[in-house]
Design a protein around this nucleic acid. Sequence first.
RNA 1: UCCUCGAUAGCUCAGCUGGUUAGAGCGAGUGACUGUUAAUCACUAGGUCCCUGGUUCGAGCCCAGGUCGGGGAGCCA
Length: 504
Amino acid sequence: MYIKDLSKFENQLVTLKGWVANKRESKGLVFIVLRDGTGLCQCVADANNIDESYFNDARKTTLETSISITGKVIKDEKQIGGYEIAITELELIQVATDYPIAKKEHGVEFLMDHRHLWLRSQRQWAIMRIRNTITFAIHKFFQQEGFIQMDAPLFTGNAVEGTSTLFETDFYGDPAYLSQSGQLYGEAMAMAHNKIYTFGPTFRAEKSKTRRHLSEFWMIEPEMAFHDIFDNMDLIERFLRAVVLDVLANNKPELAMIERDISILENITKPFPRLTYDEAVKIIKGEVDVNNKNAIVSLEEELTSVVNRISEVEAEIKEREDKIKVPGMKKGEIGFNQAKIDKLKHELNELEEQSRNIPQWLSSARNFEYGNDFGGSDETVLTRLFDVPIMVYNWPHEVKAFYLKRDPENSKFARGVDTLAPEGYGEIVGGGERETDLDLLIGKINEHGLPMEAFEWYLDLRRYGSVPHAGFGLGLERLVAWVCKLPHVRETIPFPRMYGRLKP
RNA sequence: UCCUCGAUAGCUCAGCUGGUUAGAGCGAGUGACUGUUAAUCACUAGGUCCCUGGUUCGAGCCCAGGUCGGGGAGCCA
C-alpha cells in the first residue's frame, strides 16, 4: 500500500509505512506528514479517537522517524495529494533523533556532506524521478528506432584525446585509464549492428569547478552506419523531443514541485534552429540579431537588472532588519522575518556573483576570435536568446576531435555538431560525422601526437568495409539540469563525484 | 593552473574606524495550548570566531603563509 494509490481507498482502512517528513502538535492532536517514497500524506492522531499508547507514540515521533500507520482515508482537498489519514493505530519502527537537515535554508557544502539524507527532501526526490523518466525514455526511444544497446569498456589502454583529463588506474601492473568516451568502440559496434547506443558512466579528471562539470557522469552515445551529419542532426532533434515529451507526459507534478516553467519545455515540438559555426559567431559577437534580440545588448540589460535587483534586495533586508529591532514584535513574527532575511541574503550572494561574472562574459563575447572553440560563457551568451535547443555545425577542424570528417565542400571545417540547450544552459550534445578517409585519419593521429599502434584496430574499421557513419554523445546530467532548470549538475545525480568531492 | 568571493553556535547569518563578558533567528530540550500547513508563549542548554605565525597595551576584525569551500576561466557532455 502506497501513498500514490490512496485515491482508490477513500473511506477505507489502510496501512502505510514510511518516514515522518513533518510534524506539528497541539494538546490533543498530532499532525504527521508521512513520506513513503511515493508521495506525501498528512496523518492525524486525535487523542479522543485512539488508544492512549498509540497517541503517546505519535507524540514521540521526530523528523525522519520511521513508522507504520493504520487509519482511515479521508478526502480533503486542502491537503497535499488531496487525502488525509485519521490514525487508528501507530507503530514506531525507529525513532530518529536530531535529523540534521532542517526546514530552512542550508548551504551547499552542508547539503552535499549530507547528500545521503538530502536525497529524501522533496525537491531532490522530484529531480530523481525526472532523471528516471529521462533514462527510461532514452532506452525507449532508441529501442523503438531499432538501435541495439551495447556497452563500451570502462578500462581503456589508450586515450581518445589527450591524457591530462584521464583517471589513471592500475590494471595488473599496467596503467589503464577510466573511459572518457565510448565513441571509438561505438563505431566498431555500429559496423557490426548498424545502429547501436551505449549508456554508461564516463570519467573526466578535469579540475573544473563550474555548474556544468562532474568527474563521473553518465553518457549516451549512439552511433549509426550510413548516416551523415544531416541525418545525425535529424536524429538528435527527434531524440531530444521524444525525451522531453515523455517528461511532460509523466512528471507534471514533479515539475510543479521544483517550479519549472513548463512552457519552455513545451516548445520542444518546434523545429530546432541549425546554425553554422560562422552564423553562431556573428550572433555571439552581436553582429547579427536573433529573435529580435542582440546577444551583447541583452547581456548588458541583464547586468543592469542584476544591479537593480541587488539594491532592491539590500533595501528589503535593511527594512526587515529594522522592523525586527523594534521592541514588542511577536516572537513568531520575528522568526518569520528572519527566515525571509536568510533567503534574501542567499539571493544577494548569487546576484553579486553574477554581477562579477557578466562583465567577464561580455568582454569574452565582444572579443571572440573567429576560429576558436566556444567557451562556457559564449554558449551561455548564445543560448540565452533561444527558447528551444539549437544545433551548431561545421566547426573549424583544428578545434575539434581528430575523428570528425572534414567537410567535403570546405576543408576548413569539420562535420561536427554541438547541441546547445536554451536559457543559457549550453552544450548537452556533441557529435558529428566520422572521418572515413584512412590517410586523413592517420595524418590527424600524428598531428595530435597520439600513439599509432593504439589506434590500429580503429583504423581497421576504415580498411574493412568503411561506410559513412555518424553519432553523438549526450550528457545525461546536463540534460536533466536543463529540463529541471537547475543551477548546477550536482543535483542531477544521486551521489555526485566532482573536483573536491568524493564523499558520501 | 589562473581569477574572484568566503570560513563566527547543530544550521543560516550579524558583529561598526581593532576596545571589557561574541549576538540573533531557526533547530534541540522542558513546560503551557483541541486542526496545524516554516508566524502561539515562557524558560534552558549550545562557541578552539578554519589553522600557523606576525603587528599591537589589546585581534573575530589588520598583515603574511596555509587548509577547506562557493562562483568563474581554460577543458569539456
